[in-house]
Design a protein around this nucleic acid. Structure first.
Lengths: 190, 190
DNA sequence: TGGTACATGTAACATGTTACATGATTAG
DNA sequence: CTAATCATGTAACATGTTACATGTACCA
């Protein structure tokens, strides 16, 4: 069977399974942590892809463990399919940022609502940046030499969140909401 | 009929139709230009949403024009549905950046391939930044006062592309590809 | 008169999302 | 003993993607 090429989500799961057998549950958590910043997936998807890949012989389910855990391990066919995928030119990214739609159509909603939406999301991004910064701070000095790949992806998260926060801070005055005390500054200048 | 809430893509089309009747073709172009930086949609989707919205009474097709053009105009129901949508808290953004998956799994492909992928996408981002900068440069001085919404979304594009280019420029040495003359610098420092 | 850009649309399929159902184990 | 968390899974549906089919009008 000629095996349709993997989709990126399935491929990622295979990538993670190179590090050892994992259950669907584990994979959801692990993926969230490792690629959550630039690749979203849901639990449903993970189970579906695992089922499909098992059927295609790319992974193999092991024996049920404690809480009915069902570990999957990658097969040789899986490793081959993964290598094929990895060597193919990646597509361009897609961003879907609903807040920006709301902003673009900002004249169609009450100004204070828009300002509130902006504040909420700004806070979420600030929190995410803090997370990434903590991970970054915990990195050993030689991380870049040992695993430049993870370092690079982490840095993307940092760069992205910083850019977004700067964007919030630099919004046109009309979108900035000048009510209330000067709480929640953008990002403190270095 | 209780009318399931609009999805963001359909809502955007309605948003654009506030500016006057447009055909599917027009909308694809217009959307590409106005929200392409942070919201992707395809031609197929546009025609599908238009058909569905016409059935739901949110838009109304006018008479066929010259090249079989079929202009749609927004109805009062459409305006109401749009206003409802606009006033709802926008979801968080989702990013899907295949290149970063390839980077994360970089040890599974030849180093020079990875470097080549990075170079290709860097060039694409550089080109996009130039586009945005041209749009920005063409903006009148009072743009921020006149239409802060468009300005804000354009600025997002600029901030995002600059961050991405900085990220490329700052990649760990192992991913940087030191072969060849110093072509294609990251982004010239200001 | 022939190629290119304009313009609409369908079909088939892949992927993503939401909601729910079910049960095991652990911690308090 | 009971609430929370762990864990798997299905069903239904919404959305997104790719490929194709069809025809119109302009312009060189």
């Amino acid at each position: 069977m000629p095996e349709r090429p993997l989709n990126a989500t399935a491929a990622s799961l295979l990538g993670f399974l190179h590090d050892g057998p994992m259950t669907g549950w584990d994979l959801v958590e692990y993926a969230q942590q490792r690629i959550g910043a630039f690749w979203s997936l849901t639990q449903s998807q993970v189970y579906r892809e695992l089922t499909a890949m098992a059927a295609a012989g790319l992974v193999r389910a092991g024996e049920r463990g404690r809480r009915d855990r069902k570990p999957y391990e990658i097969t040789d066919a899986g490793r081959a399919a993964f290598a094929d995928w990895a060597a193919k030119p990646p597509a361009e990214e897609s961003i879907r940022f609903p807040l920006l739609l709301t902003v673009l159509f900002g004249r169609h909603l009450p100004a204070d609502r828009l300002v509130a939406f902006l504040a909420e999301q700004r806070a979420a991004h600030a929190a995410r940046l803090v997370e990434y910064e903590q991970v970054d701070a915990a990195l050993p000095d030689d991380a870049e030499a040992v695993d430049p790949y993870s370092v690079a992806t982490l840095r993307f998260g940092l760069a992205y969140e910083r850019a977004v926060l700067d964007w919030f801070a630099d919004l046109p005055p009309a979108l900035r909401g000048n009510a209330g005390p000067a709480d929640e500054p953008g990002r403190p200048p270095e």
